[in-house]
Amino acid sequence: MNGHVNGHMEKLRTADLGAELGERATLVQFSSAFCQPCRATRRTLADVAAMVEGVAHVEIDAEKRLSLVRDLEILRTPTVLVLDAAGRIVRRASGQPRKADVIAALGAAL
């Protein structure tokens, strides 16, 4: 994979995500099947992506993408990554985010 810095991945491509990057930013959510906060997080991120033009929401099943989870050092679900237009990781947070926090984090990417 590309974009490793100090052993950490810092950039994701369409091939890594299995989905297109957003035109301006991408909200990447790592989820697992029995994670209650993942459902609420999915709704929050989908709402923000619908509100902000050029922002995509991509949900990744952590259990099916273990190598990516290891590369990104995802330790729990939900974990949300905010990517800029080039796929660089500009923010990351674990746990269920509030809509206002997601919108603020997007500011770093846009």
Rank of each mutant, 00 (worst) to 15 (best):
G22V: 06
A49N: 05
V28D: 01
V28W: 01
A33W: 09
L17A: 10
R24P: 00
E20H: 11
T44N: 05
S31N: 11
A50R: 11
M51Q: 15
C35W: 08
A15L: 14
L45V: 00
H57R: 08
V48Q: 02
L27G: 02
R39N: 09
L21Q: 03
F30L: 06
T44G: 05
A40K: 14
E23R: 15
R24Q: 14
Q29F: 07
L21N: 01
G18A: 11
G22R: 03
Q29W: 06
E23N: 10
L17M: 11
V52N: 01
A49C: 09
V52D: 04
A50F: 02
S31K: 14
C38R: 04
F30K: 03
P37R: 03
E20R: 14
R43V: 14
V58M: 06
F30M: 06
V48G: 00
D16R: 03
H57P: 01
V28Y: 01
A15F: 07
S32T: 15
A46M: 07
A46L: 10
T44I: 14
F30A: 03
L45C: 04
G54A: 10
A49V: 06
V55E: 02
T44R: 02
L17S: 08
C38Y: 05
D47H: 12
M51V: 09
F30H: 07
A49Q: 02
R39D: 02
A50Q: 13
L17W: 03
L17K: 08
A25R: 06
V58I: 07
F34K: 11
A15E: 15
Q36S: 12
T26W: 02
T26M: 03
H57K: 08
D16N: 12
R39I: 13
V55S: 06
L27I: 10
A56V: 01
R43S: 12
V48P: 00
R43H: 11
F34S: 13
F30E: 03
R24M: 10
P37Y: 01
E20V: 06
R39Y: 11
A56S: 14
R24I: 08
V52E: 13
Q36V: 15
L21R: 03
F34T: 15
C38S: 14
E23P: 04
L17D: 06
A46S: 14
L21V: 08
F30V: 06
D47F: 07
Q36E: 11
A25G: 08
A15P: 00
D16F: 01
S32V: 12
E53T: 07
A50D: 10
T41N: 05
Q29P: 05
H57C: 07
D47V: 04
E23D: 13
G22M: 10
G54K: 13
V55D: 04
V58T: 01
A25N: 04
A15Q: 14
R24T: 11
C35T: 07
L17F: 10
E20A: 15
F30Q: 02
L27V: 09
E23C: 06
D47L: 09
V55N: 08
T26V: 05
E23H: 12
A19C: 12
A56H: 12
R42S: 12
G18P: 05
L45H: 02
V48I: 06
S31L: 11
T26K: 01
A19D: 13
V48T: 03
S31Y: 11
G54Q: 13
F30P: 03
R39M: 12
R39K: 14
